[in-house]
């Protein structure tokens, strides 16, 4: 589903972010992407999300190539890829339910479907009772659950997460990981960027890829 072949990313000011990286991620894989800050984890996720283009090499996601994809196709692809961030990125003036509904509105989904899906997603992430709360009334863990529910709204085949527990305490972190495992069990591939090595050790069966200074230095599946 994700195919990187000799991928190089070079930024005009900060220089080389990725250096000749090749890997593949199959459907329904659970995969950690690890490495120090600045190792290139976020760049990999941005390439998959087509928010960046490679300077050299080939990036293919779900059949779309970064070289030939059009703006409209990027939008369609993103509906199939959920993205969760460390800082949640919720709209502060909208309720939990409205934040989730937002991802469905942009696809032109009918109102009745949006209502049904939003309440199902809120139940799935354990926030059925807080649908009318705005982000400031929710804890960090709860806000991240809303963000995950939003990422799942369009039934993605792939969920990307960039340090999703970086702002959370241990208990909230465990809750979020359990949620990721449930999502994976339901058939969605998960690619999780984190530098939390304790967490990776506690999931010995998951695939681990490690980046260092823009190079792929370890892949447990290779």
């Amino acid at each position: 589903m994700i195919h990187f072949q000799n991928v190089v990313v070079e930024y005009p000011r900060s220089g080389r972010a990725l250096n000749d990286i090749s890997f593949q991620v199959m459907k329904n894989e659970f995969c950690f992407l690890t490495g120090h800050s600045g190792a290139g984890k976020t760049t990999v996720l941005r390439l998959i999300h087509m928010a960046d283009r490679p300077t050299d090499g080939e990036v293919r996601v779900s059949g779309y190539s970064a070289d030939t994809i059009r703006a409209r196709e990027v939008a369609v692809l993103r509906r199939k890829i959920g993205f969760v961030f460390q800082d949640f990125r919720l709209l502060p003036d909208r309720t939990a339910a409205e934040n989730i509904a937002f991802a469905l509105q942009v696809t032109g989904a009918p109102k009745s479907l949006i209502r049904v899906k939003v309440s199902r997603l809120l139940a799935q992430v354990g926030l059925a009772a807080k649908s009318e709360a705005v982000p400031t009334e929710l804890s960090g863990g709860e806000q991240q659950r809303v963000a995950i529910a939003r990422a799942l709204a369009n039934d993605p085949v792939l969920l990307l997460a960039d340090e999703p527990t970086g702002n959370l305490d241990d208990r909230a972190t465990r809750g979020i990981y359990d949620l990721f495992r449930e999502i994976h069990a339901a058939g969605t591939a998960v690619l999780l960027a984190t530098h939390d090595s304790a967490l990776i050790r506690s999931h010995p069966h998951a695939r681990v890829m490690e980046l260092d200074h823009g190079q792929l230095v370890y892949d447990s599946e290779a």
Partner: peptide, 16 residues
């Protein structure tokens, strides 16, 4: 601008 960034994140077309 935040709202627009999130729209793009969740797959809104430019037209939308």
């Amino acid at each position: 601008r935040d709202e627009i960034a999130i729209m793009r994140l969740v797959g809104a077309t430019h037209g939308f």
